[in-house]
Write a protein that binds this DNA or RNA. Structure first.
Length: 455
RNA sequence: UCCAGAGUAGCUCAAUGGUAGAGCAGCCGGCUGUUAACCGGCGGGUUGCAGGUUCGAGCCCUGCCUCUGGAGCCA
C-alpha cells in the first residue's frame, strides 16, 4: 500500500501518479449509475479532492456508508480531471470506510452562521472557514517565532502561575487547592501564599531582557474581567517582546515592523485561505494588508491626538480632554477617519498609566505607546520601562503598591539598570486584523468567555 | 456590568390573540462526468425556562436563562 499523500500535495502535483493513497473526511458524495463522486478533505488545505469511484472497484459496495462527515481512505491514480473546477482528481481503485458519520452530523454542505458553528466548536474546524482560520493561526504562530528569532530575540517561558496580584492589568483568576474560602488561610495553600493565573509575563520578561538583551514571550494569558465583547476572552495568547538598551522610539519601531511583517507573511503564505476570508468575511482584507505593508504608520503624541479630536467637530459620546483616556470611538476616529492607517499614539499622561512606565522629562507624561489599527482598535500596547530606582519606588508608592512585593523587580534597577522597553500583542486580535474575522471567539479553537468554558 | 435586539424542526427563517409552515439538511427511490447537482416521496415541534392575562397565547404582561450587536475594562 502506498503511503499517505496529503491533499495539498496531491493538488500541487506536477504530473499524474499511478499509485496514491488519500485519507480524509467526506464533504459530499454524488452517485451516478455506474460510479460515484466523492469529495474528500483532510484539512491540509482549503480545497477538497474529487474522487471518481467506479461501481466495480473493491469497496464501492460500501460507498453508501460514506455520507458527509465520514472518514475514508482512497487508493487510486491521480489523473487530470475531465470536469471543470479542479485540475486533478483521483480515479479510485479501492475505497475503504474508516469511520461512518451518524445522520445527525450537523455540518451541512451549505453555509452556517458563525453563531451556530460556535456551538459545535469540536466540529467546526471541519468547515471551510474554520479550517482556514486555524491553518492561518498556526502559520502566524510560526511567523511570530521566525520574526523574533531572526532578530536574535530569545524566547522565554514566563510563569503561568504568579504570586503577584496587583500588576494593574485587570482581574485575576485565583489558583488554589484549598476547599471553601482560600482567603481565610492562604498560608496553608499549595504555594503557601495566594496565587493566580498570569495576566502578563512582562515583569519576568524584563528580568530576562536585563540579561539576554532581547527577549520575547509567547504564551497563554488570563483575565477574569467580566468583559462581554467581540474582542475579549478570558484566556488568550499574548506576545511580549522586551529589549534592553532601548527607548520608546525603538519600541515603536519594533511594533510597526512586527505588524508589517505579519501582514507580509499572511499575504505571502496564506493566499488560498485569505481568498476565502475575502469572499465570505471581509472583502477588503487583502487591500488592508497591502496598505499596512506599503504605507508608513502615523505617530502622534497623545497631546496632539487630543487636539485632533477636539478640532474634528465630531459629537463624541465621551468627553475629550487632556488626562482622559481615549475611548474606543476616539481611537476609531483617529485610525479609521483621520489618518486612515495604523496610528501609534505615544506619551500618555502619567496618571492613566501603570507604575512601571517611564516618566518623561516633562514631568507630566509617561513613555507609553498604543498601536491602533482600523477595525480592531488597540493591537499593541507598550512602553519604555522606568529604569531609575528612585523614580520607580516613588511610582509604586503613588500606586499604593508594597515595595516588598516587588523587591525582585526593583533589584533589576539596583544591579546594572539599563533603559529598556517592550510591548504586548494580543495574538487573537492580531489574527482578527489579519483575517478580517470580526469575533475573537472565532480565531481561538475553544473560546473561554464569561459563563462559557465548554469543550 | 450597562444599553439595545433576538430565541419557533438538525440549520436558516415564516406564521392579525383562533388547528405551527417553508426552504435546506436527513431517510427512501429515480436520473445525471457530477461539483452549494437535479426530480419525486417520507419522517421531523413541550415555539428557551417559569409564572400570569385570556374562552383561547408562538404572538400580550412579569421574572429568569442563553445568544448577538454596542459600551466600559483591556490585549
Amino acid at each position: 500500500m502506498a503511503t499517505r499523500t496529503l491533499i495539498k500535495h496531491a493538488l500541487a502535483s506536477a504530473a499524474p501518479r499511478d499509485a496514491i493513497l488519500i485519507q480524509g473526511w467526506v464533504r459530499t458524495r454524488r452517485d451516478a449509475k455506474g460510479f460515484s463522486f466523492l469529495e474528500l478533505n483532510d484539512g491540509s488545505c482549503l480545497a477538497s479532492l474529487q474522487v471518481v469511484a467506479d461501481a466495480d472497484i473493491p469497496g464501492h459496495d460500501q460507498i453508501h456508508r460514506l455520507t458527509t462527515g465520514a472518514a475514508a481512505a482512497v487508493e487510486g491514480r491521480l489523473v487530470a480531471s475531465r470536469g471543470a473546477g479542479q485540475k486533478w482528481e483521483v480515479h479510485a481503485t479501492r475505497i475503504t470506510v474508516v469511520g461512518e458519520a451518524d445522520p445527525s452530523y450537523p455540518l451541512q454542505k451549505k453555509g452556517h452562521t458563525m453563531e451556530f458553528l460556535r456551538t459545535i466548536a469540536h466540529l467546526r474546524p471541519r468547515s471551510n472557514l474554520f479550517g482556514a482560520v486555524f491553518r492561518v493561526r498556526s502559520r502566524l504562530a510560526f511567523a511570530v517565532h521566525q520574526f523574533f528569532q531572526e532578530r536574535d530575540f530569545v524566547h522565554v517561558h514566563t510563569p503561568i502561575i504568579t504570586g503577584s496580584d496587583c500588576e494593574g492589568a485587570g482581574e485575576l483568576f485565583r489558583v488554589t487547592t484549598l476547599k471553601g474560602r482560600p482567603d481565610e488561610n492562604p498560608g496553608t495553600d499549595f504555594f503557601g501564599k495566594p496565587t493566580y493565573l498570569t495576566v502578563s509575563g512582562q515583569l519576568e520578561g524584563e528580568a530576562f531582557a536585563c540579561a539576554l538583551s532581547n527577549i520575547y514571550t509567547f504564551g497563554p494569558t488570563f483575565r477574569a474581567e467580566n468583559s462581554n465583547t467581540a474582542r475579549h476572552a478570558a484566556e488568550f495568547w499574548m506576545i511580549e517582546p522586551e529589549m534592553a538598551f532601548c527607548d520608546l522610539a525603538g519600541d515603536m519601531d519594533l511594533g510597526e515592523t512586527f505588524l508589517k511583517a505579519m501582514a507580509r507573511y499572511t499575504l505571502d503564505h496564506c493566499a488560498e485561505d485569505l481568498a476565502l476570508f475575502a469572499r465570505f468575511v471581509d472583502r477588503s482584507v487583502r487591500d488592508r494588508l497591502a496598505f499596512v505593508i506599503e504605507r508608513p504608520f502615523q505617530r502622534v503624541p497623545y497631546t496632539e491626538a487630543v487636539e485632533i479630536l477636539k478640532r474634528s467637530g465630531r459629537p463624541f459620546a465621551f468627553p475629550v480632554g487632556y488626562g482622559l483616556n481615549l475611548q474606543s470611538e476616539h481611537e476609531r476616529f483617529l485610525t479609521e477617519d483621520h489618518f486612515k492607517c495604523p496610528v501609534t499614539v505615544f506619551n500618555y499622561p502619567r496618571e492613566i498609566k501603570p507604575f512601571y512606565m517611564r516618566a518623561n522629562n516633562d514631568g507630566k507624561t509617561a513613555a507609553a505607546m498604543d498601536l491602533l489599527v482600523p477595525g480592531i482598535g488597540e493591537v499593541i500596547g507598550g512602553a519604555q520601562r522606568e529604569e531609575r530606582l528612585d523614580v520607580l519606588l516613588a511610582n509604586m508608592r503613588q500606586h499604593h503598591l508594597r515595595e516588598q512585593d516587588y523587591s525582585w523587580y526593583a533589584d533589576l534597577r539596583r544591579y546594572g539598570t539599563v533603559p529598556h522597553a517592550g510591548f504586548g500583542v494580543g495574538f487573537e486580535r492580531l489574527l482578527m486584523f489579519l483575517t478580517g474575522i470580526p469575533n475573537i471567539r472565532d480565531v481561538i479553537p475553544f473560546a473561554r468567555t464569561p459563563g462559557s468554558a465548554d469543550f
